[in-house]
Design a protein around this nucleic acid. Structure first.
Length: 476
RNA sequence: GGCGCCGUACCCAAGAGGUAAGGGAGAGGUCUGCAAAACCUUUAUGCAUCGGUUCGAUUCCGAUCGGCGCCUCCA
């Protein structure tokens, strides 16, 4: 398969370090607030990546960090501060707050059918690993101590900025922020703080450089190497990480080990609103729960994300989400219909390799799209074209779509008539109404018949007259 | 100031140097007492604008306009 590697900005054939094993590290959430749907887009992308790699036979070890140290108390946004404050008043610790948002994060990802990473690791559980790594960097001569903090000296690292295409002399340092006067070079960054820039840094640890806390980039270097080795295959995150976070991770990691660290860098583009990216400061902070509260299924949002390529900005709108929901429900209906037509339970279906040639061609096209840098929109197009191909027997189509869903992650195997959830009493009532309407129709009293139909429709029940009688369904 | 991305039908969104996937929405039709559903058909001679390269560009190059991102924690 081919993946777009930010390092080199090109499509590259994916060759894992070790045979069929893939070491994958995805930057996880900073747990001082709820994740918003823009954040979630990136995790959906990573989920698609992992599912695709596994589909193609790789044994993936997926590591994700939980950043529960750093700027937890430095967040001066107003939104959720009361959360922190009330927790403190109740005697809760910052770590308990972190745990709260970590739990919330995994509730969201689970609702989106995002597979849990193989290893989830918290920064605060790995302080010693970070200290050990910093000492290696220090021993190799890449650091200096100033103003109470230990800095990484970017001028010592020859390839600094390669990932982002940065040329230090051309950057306008401090364009948007004041330069730390302790830095020799504006792009130097802190490995270990003893002088907090926040007044009440809550978490402190002893270290060779004094009591303090780690810099913001070191945790990813330390934890990824701990679980995946000093060199591994893929590292992913949002595009915003390219210039600073990942650039600094590379510098410190390779300064410590003296060799290449990561082979493939992948970055997901932003979900954008009319006015730009989603952020707290602009007041456009939508959580998955907000969508649920408005009546959407989390998978509507997953489907929405599947509609755009991960390397393109995706514009969010309620209209767009409505369209995704309509498409997803149509897909589910289709699968339900196929199940009935195929007349057999899903588990007894043909395995992919036993599917007929016609359907198999679509499966191949689907895989081809995935292997071309995860071209989900094209893969989705194959899904629909296959489903509308009348040449394909229902059983084949069903086996095919369920196999595709191993990557789509839309829970199509669980698709069933939503009508099954209606309670028995209501069903009896509906059936009674249908009988009364049938009688009215027989008497050619269409006004009465239509009145019954309208009454049901007002309750969200749609009647459908078929050659073999009248059936009903819930309206979308 | 530096770096980068994008501008495709009513909406979302693929794509490709050789004549525009898919979904949503809309329209027409079949069916129906009428609907609904389903199915069929259909909706960009056109891909921001202006130049250039080419037998040929929307796809390559340049300029312009517009939008967005990064250079600060940030998905």
């Amino acid at each position: 398969m081919y993946l777009f590697n930010t390092m080199g900005r090109s499509l590259q054939r994916f060759e894992p370090l070790h045979d069929h094993k893939v070491g994958f590290y995805g930057c996880g959430p900073t747990v001082y607030n709820f994740a918003h749907i823009g954040n979630l887009r990136t995790y959906i992308f990573e989920d698609i990546l992992v599912r695709t790699l596994r589909r193609f036979g790789y044994d993936v070890t997926h590591v994700m960090n939980i950043t529960d140290v750093g700027h937890l108390t430095g967040d001066d946004d107003t939104g959720e501060d009361k959360m922190v404050r009330s927790a403190r008043e109740r005697g809760s610790s910052v770590l308990e707050i972190a745990q709260f948002y970590t739990d919330a994060f995994f509730v969201d990802t689970q609702r989106l059918n995002i597979n849990r990473p193989t290893i989830v690791c918290k920064a605060t559980d790995h302080i010693q690993d970070m200290i050990d790594l910093i000492q290696r960097i220090e021993a190799n001569g890449y650091t200096y101590f100033a103003g109470g903090n230990l800095y990484f000296d970017v001028s010592k690292f020859e390839h600094y900025g390669e990932l982002a295409g940065l040329q230090l002399d051309q950057l306008k340092a401090g364009a948007r922020i004041e330069i730390d006067p302790n830095k020799r070079n504006p792009f130097d960054f802190v490995l270990w703080f003893t002088k907090s820039k926040f007044e009440n840094q809550a978490l402190l640890w002893d270290s060779p450089w004094g009591r303090g806390y780690p810099g913001w980039h070191i945790e990813c270097s330390a934890m990824s190497m701990k679980y995946l080795g000093e060199q591994f295959d893929i590292h992913a995150g949002g595009v915003d990480h390219i210039a600073v976070h990942h650039t600094n991770e590379i510098a410190q990691s390779e300064a410590a080990t003296g060799h290449k660290w990561v082979n493939y860098w992948m970055h997901a583009e932003f979900l954008v609103l009319d006015k730009g990216k989603m952020s707290k400061s602009s007041g456009s902070f939508l959580t998955l729960q907000t969508l649920v509260d408005k009546g959407y299924d989390p998978l509507d949002y997953r489907y929405f994300c599947l509609g755009g390529h991960y390397r393109s900005q995706l514009s969010f709108s309620w209209e767009g989400l409505d369209q995704a929901r309509a498409a997803r429900l149509a897909l589910v209906d289709r699968v339900v219909a196929l199940k009935e037509a195929a007349g057999q339970p899903a588990h007894s279906l043909a395995r992919p390799e036993q599917i007929g040639a016609a359907a198999k061609a679509y499966l191949q096209a689907f895989d081809d799209a995935l292997s071309d840098d995860l071209a989900m929109p094209r893969a989705l197009a194959q899904v629909w074209t296959m489903l509308k191909d009348t040449e394909i027997p229902p059983a084949d189509a069903l086996a095919c779509i369920l196999d595709m869903d191993r990557v789509l992650g839309l829970s199509l195997d669980a698709a069933e008539k939503r009508e099954a959830s209606v309670d028995a009493e209501t069903v009896r009532w509906i059936e009674d109404m249908i009988r009364r309407r049938a009688a009215a129709k027989k008497a050619r009293d269409y006004a009465a018949a239509d009145a019954i139909r309208n009454e049901l429709k007002a309750k969200g029940i749609q009647l459908e007259d078929r050659p073999d009688g009248t059936s009903w369904k819930l309206t979308n």
